[in-house]
Design a protein around this nucleic acid. Structure first.
Length: 621
DNA sequence: GAAGCGTTATACTAT
DNA sequence: ATAACGCTTC
């Protein structure tokens, strides 16, 4: 593999220090990490003694894929995945040391649902009770930044003392309910792992002894909780971290862009290397991106140098409505495809999943194949959740959230009745005993119990269990949703997805940890398709032609961050990440939007026409 | 008291 | 599209 001098110096570093590679956008971070792994293998490091931490499982898969072309089968022995995957699977592999038993991993929706049940008990008291989703966010943020919830709220929120106490009470009750239900939320996965590592010297030493090198991608977006895990695992393992402060866009999860600056202070025996030459983009794209950063009050001290010499000025197109914007992008895609370009050379970047909906409908209408990455996932759709909850109910009679949702599908059962039925089962040891208890107390509810029984009998074959669950739920659901035909197709999709899995729990866990959109599930991986992607998910990716949609007031910076300097600067980095994905063509589009949006912080109130070609289109709807 | 229905609000980013 | 809320019905 060809590496430039700086990349080579990083990849083939042979000293004993921990390394941070500061690498700007498009400077070959991934290439350098892959080069590093290849180098380590060449020098005799065993592949299973290399741990590769990536930001998403998708990124891990791509790196392993590229490595296999370089080093063959050895790539399959490398441990690669996110902090969450690594932590969870290590705990599952060492069940006696971590004691997570049969715990169910719950996603954010489940967290919110559980807090909602708890919150109902707080409604009577005077004053406003924060929303369940807000409580989940606050608590998760405090945990990811490793600070007590009350201290965090005291310092960083506007809540009065009484409300703070209430939020802390709800969080405590949330913890209790999780234990009762054998739930692990995303944060528990990291916390439990870190706690055991810290408390149990023997386990810690055993794990540390398993690795020589820990490589961390997207270091700028690791939060204090993840840092804590790295600190517990390093020495003797050597750290090789790669990141870019200007691309730090996960502050809401506890990451701080300044962290990479203090790397050498935080990590003894460490040094910083740099990658500065950009191979991805044409000069025009880089000039425009550099200008965006220069307008910031923060000095990132970087200016990307293009290796490529072609000018390639970006375009900025103004449309009257989102319909006109979407229509243009769809027809431009079709035109480029007709001219011989592949669909997969095109990426459409969106700030929010919601903002891409108009465009999505045009993609469907024009029959342009696309994959949506980020945004709402298949498992979050109401009808899919219904089905998953029946499966979960059959697997674990103490799964309060699953049972509540399942029971409420039946007439005359609401939160209260469901709660009573679940309480009746809580002391039963087995599912069979629980169903027996339920059936004695509710003789008229044969159907309800029979459904769970049939699914429970088929759990050894996930696809079969899904088929049964789908059949028994159809009569209950088909009148509840208007577009039932389209929704029921998702059940078939789910069945197909489950076919490769050996256990139901494994299947559900895999897709809880790695959410998948409908558009991804419908297509197989190598099909030529346009990528529609949120900017957050696009970190680390690139495409020849990039469309950035809805680059307008209220979006960049997002209206929610207006007023906070830190938040607005994070939004600038988000836009920076988006723009630097483009290799050849960068097309920014905006609509005229609503008239009442505060546009004073918009990043492009004035457009420098030496940097970008501006096109205004006729006011067509 | 609990369930169910219709109306209205809200929709940022994600492991 | 879905959650939350207020109001009516059982």
């Amino acid at each position: 593999m060809e590496l430039n001098l700086q990349q080579k110096a990083a990849a083939e570093y042979s000293g004993e220090n921990h390394i941070l590679v500061l690498a700007g956008a498009g400077t070959g971070k991934t290439r350098t990490i892959i080069g590093r792994v290849a180098y380590l293998l060449e020098t005799g490091v065993k592949p299973w003694r290399i741990l590769l931490m990536t930001f998403t499982r998708r990124a891990a898969g791509e790196m392993i894929e590229r490595l296999s072309g370089l080093v063959g089968d050895a790539s399959r022995s490398i441990s690669a995945g996110t902090f969450h995957h690594f932590s969870l699977y290590t705990m599952r592999r060492m069940p006696n040391d971590f004691n997570i038993g049969k715990a169910t991993v719950i996603d954010r929706d489940d967290q919110v649902q559980l807090v909602r049940l708890i919150r109902d008990g707080y409604k009577r008291k005077k004053g406003v009770v924060p929303r369940a989703a807000e409580v989940v966010n606050l608590y998760s943020y405090a945990r990811n930044t490793v600070q007590p919830l009350d201290a965090y709220l005291d310092k960083h929120s506007d809540y009065d003392d009484e409300t703070i106490k209430m939020i802390c009470d709800m969080a405590r009750e949330y913890e209790r309910r999780k234990q009762l239900n054998l739930y692990l939320d995303y944060d528990d996965i990291l916390f439990r792992f870190a706690d055991v590592l810290q408390e149990n010297r023997e386990v810690r030493e055993r794990l540390k002894g398993g690795y020589d090198h820990i490589l961390v991608d997207e270091m700028q977006d690791t939060n204090p909780l993840q840092w804590r895990i790295l600190e517990l695992l390093k020495d003797p393992p050597r750290l090789f971290c790669v990141g870019d402060d200007a691309q730090s866009i996960y502050a809401f999860r506890g990451a701080d862009f300044r962290n990479v600056h203090s790397f050498t202070e935080r990590v003894a025996q460490s040094e910083v290397l740099r990658l500065e030459e950009n191979y991805r983009s044409v000069q025009g794209v880089l000039d425009f991106s550099n200008q965006l950063l220069e307008n910031s009050s923060i000095r990132y001290g970087k200016k990307l140098r293009a290796y490529r010499k072609d000018p390639g000025k970006p375009r900025f197109m103004i449309f009257y409505s989102d319909m006109a914007e979407a229509r243009y992008i769809a027809s431009d895609l079709v035109q480029r495809h007709k001219n011989g370009a592949r669909w997969s050379d095109h990426m459409i970047l969106t700030r929010t999943g919601y903002a891409a909906r108009t465009l999505e409908s045009f993609m469907v209408e024009k029959k342009i194949p696309y994959r949506f990455i980020g945004g709402a996932s298949l498992l979050q759709a109401a009808h899919v959740k219904d089905l998953i909850c029946l499966l979960r109910s059959a697997m674990n009679h103490r799964d309060e959230l699953a049972w509540t949702r399942y029971l409420k599908m039946f007439p005359k059962i609401g939160d209260v009745t469901a709660g009573k039925m679940i309480a009746a089962m809580k002391d039963c040891e087995t599912t069979a005993a629980a169903l027996e208890t339920l059936s004695k107390a509710n003789p008229s509810r044969k159907e309800l119990i029979g459904n769970v029984n049939s699914v429970a009998g088929a759990l050894e074959s996930p696809a079969e269990a899904i088929k049964i669950a789908s059949d028994v739920l159809t009569p209950l659901l088909k009148n509840r949703y208007d577009n039932w035909k389209r929704r029921s197709n998702d059940f078939k999709l789910l069945k197909r997805m489950a076919e490769g899995h050996e256990s139901m729990a494994g299947f559900i866990e895999a897709y809880t940890l790695e959410p998948i959109s409908t558009s991804m599930a419908e297509r197989d991986g190598d099909e030529d398709a346009v990528t529609l992607i949120t900017v957050h998910s696009a970190k680390g990716t690139e495409a020849k032609v990039c469309y950035l949609i809805r680059v307008e007031p209220g979006m960049y910076p997002h209206s929610r961050s207006i007023g906070s300097i830190d938040d607005e600067e994070e939004e600038r980095r988000i836009l920076y990440v988006a723009m630097t994905r483009a290799m050849d063509d960068l097309i920014l589009t905006r609509t005229m939007g609503k008239w009442d949006v505060d546009d004073s912080s918009f990043f492009f109130n004035e457009l420098d026409e030496t940097m970008v070609d501006v096109h205004s289109t006729p006011h067509l709807y």
